[in-house]
Computed example of a mutant assay.
Amino acid sequence: MKATAKAHPIQGLIKYHGMRDEELRLPYHDSISVCTAPSATTTTVEFQPDAKEDVYLIGGDRVEGRGAERIDAVVEHVRDLADVEHPVRLESENSFPSNIGFGSSSSGFAAAAMALAEAAGLDMTRPEVSTIARRGSSSAARAVTGAFSHLYSGMNDRDCRSERIETDLEDELRIVAAHVPAYKETEQAHREAAESHMFQARMAHVHHQIDEMRDALYDADFDRAFELAEHDSLSLTATTMTGPAGWVYWQPDTIAVFNAVRELREDENVPVFFSTDTGASVYVNTTAEHVDTVENRIAAVGVDTDVWEVGGPAQILSESDALF
């Protein structure tokens, strides 16, 4: 009863914000994202009949407090589905920085859900596994199905699950990841989302944005898709900044990257757009043809960069890849 899985983190394109059910992590509205590779989380889990308690480790450190509670929600759901009671050992490693806005919770809970389902002997499709991952992080549902994926809102697991969107942009997209290391707290921002006076304005237009994004992906219209993602980032930030806590995630380097992107687009006609989730780091979306030009310009801002491509769905790895 042991398995290892790998999942890629997501970049939100039309992002969810706020949860109408915190326990099941049911979002207020649909969302669309794209997975980024080779950045990934690898997770090994084992049901251990002789163990006395659950043990969770990330990067070798014991997970406690709220982090352990979120993992518990996923583990307990798998136990219920598989009708097993054994304690679980879970170890996880990220190949990229966490808590700076690059979606580590999405890949973390996606890999955990895949490994747990496999170790428990559950025969499930990835959309079904996405409902397990969602209990840890709504974004993780989309990391399970991978590439460009759509998480539907709903009040139950039948409706609130993720599906992959097929698009030719999978081969064309390149993402220059601009690292701006400033710690961010996402869960509290989700908890108070509906208290922002901008939230209802966001709700009024986000459903149309979802339709527009799906249509752009079907047509493989790069400019249209990533202009939508750029504007959605601004909309999301307006909502987080006007909540009770007044969350301001962006740093001076974040704005400098935005300015560099706009200069490339407006002065040099380069197809490039910025996007952020709840964090200071920036996804700079461009095409394979222009990625070197874009990376050089973003690096000149003085931030560390990586170049990522589109990542696939969460995968079960071989026994030789186990972390313990």
Rank of each mutant, 00 (worst) to 15 (best):
D292A: 14
G279N: 09
T237I: 13
A256Y: 09
R224L: 03
I14R: 08
G59C: 09
R134W: 06
D292K: 13
T167D: 03
E91M: 08
R70I: 12
A5W: 05
P252Q: 10
I316R: 12
D83P: 04
S137E: 02
A40R: 10
D83L: 13
T42Q: 06
T186V: 02
S281V: 07
M124E: 04
T240W: 04
W250Y: 14
S104M: 04
I32N: 03
H190N: 04
D221K: 01
G146I: 03
T36I: 15
A119Q: 07
A37C: 11
T131D: 05
H8M: 06
A204H: 09
T242N: 13
T237Q: 15
I165S: 01
A314F: 11
R297Q: 13
D21P: 02
R62D: 00
P9S: 08
P252K: 08
P313T: 04
A189E: 09
R297H: 01
E268Q: 13
A112E: 14
S104G: 08
A300I: 00
S130E: 02
E289P: 13
G103E: 04
M114K: 09
S139D: 12
R66M: 13
T286F: 11
Q11D: 04
L234F: 15
M124L: 15
R202W: 05
L13N: 04
V45K: 03
P271M: 05
E23M: 11
R224C: 02
T286S: 05
L323P: 10
E309H: 15
R164T: 10
E266S: 12
S107T: 05
V129T: 01
K184A: 12
F273Y: 15
Y249Q: 12
D30R: 06
R164E: 07
P244H: 04
E230M: 07
V272M: 01
L234H: 13
Y218P: 00
A177W: 09
D223K: 12
E166P: 00
A141L: 08
A140K: 00
W250C: 10
Q315C: 10
T4P: 03
A182L: 09
K52G: 02
V282E: 01
E295C: 08
L264K: 07
E76F: 12
D253K: 11
F148W: 03
E192D: 10
L57G: 01
G136Y: 02
M213V: 02
P27Q: 09
L264F: 05
D211E: 13
S104D: 09
T36D: 11
D321K: 14
I165G: 00
A299V: 05
E172G: 03
Q188Y: 15
R164A: 07
A5Y: 11
F222K: 07
G302F: 00
H197L: 07
L217C: 09
A112D: 11
S320P: 11
N94S: 08
A204M: 06
Y249S: 08
N94W: 06
T42D: 02
M213G: 01
V307Y: 10
